[in-house]
């Protein structure tokens, strides 16, 4: 569905490329995440894919056609939710949706239903200028859905949202995947990526440093140990995960002491990111 190879881009007036030799492919129905700190090239890559930036080198294919060769028809196929809210502030939420929705040929989703989907039904007739950032971001999100596109580009989809609304948006993203949509997310929220993405790519300084499923990345960088906390002591005791079932010390402790917690030492995606890239996600 999306195929990128040797993709590089340099902004006018800049000496170095913003992205360098990117290679990745996104299959139909997949949620793919681009993770990286601010300025890593995540948004640049997306902007190339939805044709806001021209003059790239390498190849970027959507549905087998080079992005530069797509006409405005591309915008019937894709939906974009930007990193920052961009709405007519003097118009209401409903007026905004109806205005943008009027440009699509195909039957689009009902604006009132979309507003209800993200809990904005009571704010439908409120001017967007009076919205909080989280409300504006939810409006960004549903605007991307109103023509029922096959491919969704979501740039920091939960940015500025409280945990409950972020959870709602993540549920909706999973639901959209269930409907067969292909979703390309950029985020620096590791937790979101871990929860949502089938595969993630770590992007730092315009280069992909790792690309795999979140689970595989976590496992690859996990220490194969188990930590157990017992009632009769303050600290935790560590056992090797390999041969755990036959480890006499571990079995003896399990029988003789009361266990408070027991955890495998699986690395968080955050820790993996830092380990792979040497950078934190700020």
């Amino acid at each position: 569905m999306i195929q990128v190879s040797s993709l590089s881009f340099t902004y006018a007036g800049q000496t170095g490329p913003a992205i360098h030799d990117l290679e990745f492919a996104i299959s139909p129905g997949e949620i793919f995440g681009f993770l990286g700190p601010s300025g890593a090239g995540k948004t640049t890559t997306q902007k190339i894919l939805f044709k806001l930036l021209a003059g790239y080198s390498g190849s970027a294919l959507i549905d087998g056609r080079e992005v530069r060769d797509w006409d405005i028809d591309l915008y019937h196929r894709i939906g974009v939710s930007f990193e920052l809210p961009n709405h007519y502030l003097k118009l209401t939420a409903l007026e905004n949706l109806n205005f943008f929705g009027a440009f699509y040929q195909q039957h689009y989703r009902n604006a009132v239903d979309l507003l209800a989907m993200v809990g904005l039904e009571n704010a439908a007739n409120q001017k967007v200028g009076a919205f909080s950032k989280g409300m504006k971001m939810r409006l960004n999100f549903i605007r991307a859905l109103q023509h029922n596109p096959e491919i969704l580009f979501l740039d920091e989809p939960t940015s500025g949202m409280d945990p409950a609304n972020a959870h709602l948006i993540k549920d909706l993203i999973r639901q959209l995947q269930g409907e067969g949509k292909t979703i390309f997310i950029t985020t620096h929220q590791m937790h979101d990526a871990q929860e949502l993405c089938d595969r993630v790519a770590f992007l730092v300084d315009g280069r992909i440093r790792a690309l795999d499923t979140p689970k595989s990345l976590q496992l690859a960088y996990s220490s194969r140990t188990v930590e157990v906390q017992f009632r009769d002591s303050d600290g935790v005791k560590t056992y090797a995960l390999d041969g755990l079932g036959t480890n006499p010390e571990f079995l003896n402790d399990l029988h003789g002491r009361e266990v408070v917690t027991i955890h495998s030492r699986e690395a968080s995606l955050d820790a993996v990111f830092m380990e792979v890239t040497g950078k934190s996600l700020v």
Binding site: F50, L52, I72, D73, Y75, H76, I78, V80, F82, L84, N86, H87, Y88, L89, K90, F100, F103, Y104, Q105, R143
Partner: peptide
Amino acid sequence: LEEKDEQVIQALRILPLR
């Protein structure tokens, strides 16, 4: 100018509209 200030132009650019 308001469309420019509020970056609505970006949203307009991803519409099937020249």
